[in-house]
Design a binder for these strands. Sequence first.
DNA 1: ACTTGACTTAGAGTTAACTCTAACTGGTAC
DNA 2: GTACCAGTTAGAGTTAACTCTAAGTCAAGT
Lengths: 134, 134
Amino acid sequence: MNKYSIGKFATKVGLTTYTLRYYDKQKLIIPKRDENNRRYYDDEDVKWIGFILHLKGTGMLMTEIQEYVELRKQGDSTINQRKQLLQSVRKRSIAEINERKSHLKILSLKIDWYDGKLKYKVNENFEEYIKRFR
Amino acid sequence: MNKYSIGKFATKVGLTTYTLRYYDKQKLIIPKRDENNRRYYDDEDVKWIGFILHLKGTGMLMTEIQEYVELRKQGDSTINQRKQLLQSVRKRSIAEINERKSHLKILSLKIDWYDGKLKYKVNENFEEYIKRFR
DNA sequence: ACTTGACTTAGAGTTAACTCTAACTGGTAC
DNA sequence: GTACCAGTTAGAGTTAACTCTAAGTCAAGT
């Protein structure tokens, strides 16, 4: 099994040693220690941090990930709870994406409207323009 | 033309008076003043704050909105610059959505994997499971 | 021997966008 | 006449997630 010092691991996963010590303190990922009390990470940790980064990428908060870690530590009896936790994050994340998309649509319409002004010298105001779409 | 005090306007647009004074200070939306130096907002401001909130909703930063405001103040000669600014925000926002979606896909797969464990007592590990999709 | 990289605790600084408090003034409505 | 809403400046506090510094120790590698 490969062993990585905090520095090597940081490079491998694209984080800084500061962040990793911070995650350790926050109990997101707690590495083992060698005989000199130095942290070392293994390939399981590579998988685990990878998954954590996916969770973060969905907008899951650190406190929620901590909760997830707690449940995980308790073993298979908490699988249903973990699933529910992820489902609620999923729901929220999808809602956030949809909201952002709807704002993005307005922004896109504004760009189109500018295009109309620039290319065809259209002079309808944006509020009227926007009504004709959506 | 309707006039709104800061309090009425705050209620109307769903912000607080603190936030509106902050936006004033930040030059996002600068209302007119009455004879007693009190801010008042009109229907143009309603439209404008609405648009600002759409911009914010796309993830556009306040500094970028300030830049946009600056250009707008300079009149029609800056339309092309404004369009370009919005296009760059649009591009970034779409990229962020796509990234979030890709993380969300992994999270969804994990939920499905939990389902397999719970309903069908499947025992394949997640890393193997995940390889079969995407 | 010396550099490098690890360790510790404790706490300060950063970023973005608010959010609120203090302490005071002043016009409007009931 | 008093409550209410507005105004001001200045600055502190909040949230999330880092990010970095200080000041010191300790062990391995060249």
